[in-house]
Simulated scan of single mutants.
Amino acid sequence: MNAPKIFETGVVDVEFGSNVRIVNPVNLYGCTIGADVFVGPFVEIQRDVKIGRGTKVQSHSFICELVEIGEDCFIGHGVMFINDLFSNGGPAGGDKAMWKETRIGNKVSIGSNATILPVTICDNVVIGAGSVVTKNILMPGIYAGNPATKIRET
């Protein structure tokens, strides 16, 4: 019988601001976490991600490479960020040249189980739980649905 190759979760090569709180288990590597950030359990934050000061990332969220999140944001439970749009009909197979960036502004709240494709979201936006953000959001407001659309002003 062949033995599996087992990888351990942990915190490796992370730049932290002051007063960061983390609830294990987490998998954080090669990222930058600003001051006063909270990271809940079962969260993965990948290489080159930047999380701004005062942001809270709740449990079971996945933040992939090429994501930048601003200050004082809330990332709900189970939020998934995507950087590969399968533009060739399937996964990029590790070809980072095919991946796209996501930029989240300041004071953005993303509800539980939302999926965020590679987009830009401006400051002062609320994304409803379970929403799928497929296009840039350039005006503050409350957005929900699949695909997410503006449902009202904040």
Results as ranks from 00 to 15, higher is better:
G54W: 05
T55G: 07
T55R: 05
S61G: 10
S61Q: 03
F62T: 06
I63Y: 07
I63N: 08
C64Y: 01
E65W: 01
L66A: 04
L66G: 00
V67F: 10
E68Q: 14
E68K: 14
G70N: 09
E71L: 07
D72T: 06
C73R: 12
C73T: 13
F74Y: 13
I75T: 05
I75V: 05
G76P: 10
H77S: 13
G78H: 01
V79M: 14
V79A: 15
M80H: 00
M80T: 13
M80S: 12
D84L: 13
L85R: 15
F86K: 00
F86S: 10
F86N: 12
F86R: 00
F86W: 15
F86T: 03
S87L: 10
S87K: 11
N88D: 13
G89P: 11
G90Y: 08
P91Q: 07
P91T: 12
A92N: 01
A97W: 09
M98K: 12
M98F: 02
W99G: 08
W99L: 14
K100H: 14
E101W: 13
E101V: 09
T102Q: 10
T102M: 07
T102F: 09
R103Y: 12
R103W: 07
G105D: 15
N106G: 11
N106A: 10
V108K: 12
S109D: 07
G111Y: 08
S112C: 10
A114T: 01
I116A: 00
I116E: 02
I116D: 01
I116P: 07
L117T: 03
L117R: 06
P118R: 04
T120L: 06
T120K: 13
D123G: 07
V125C: 04
V126G: 06
G128H: 01
A129K: 11
A129N: 08
G130K: 09
G130N: 00
S131I: 00
V132R: 13
V133E: 00
V133L: 04
K135P: 07
K135V: 00
N136Y: 10
N136A: 14
N136V: 02
N136M: 01
I137K: 08
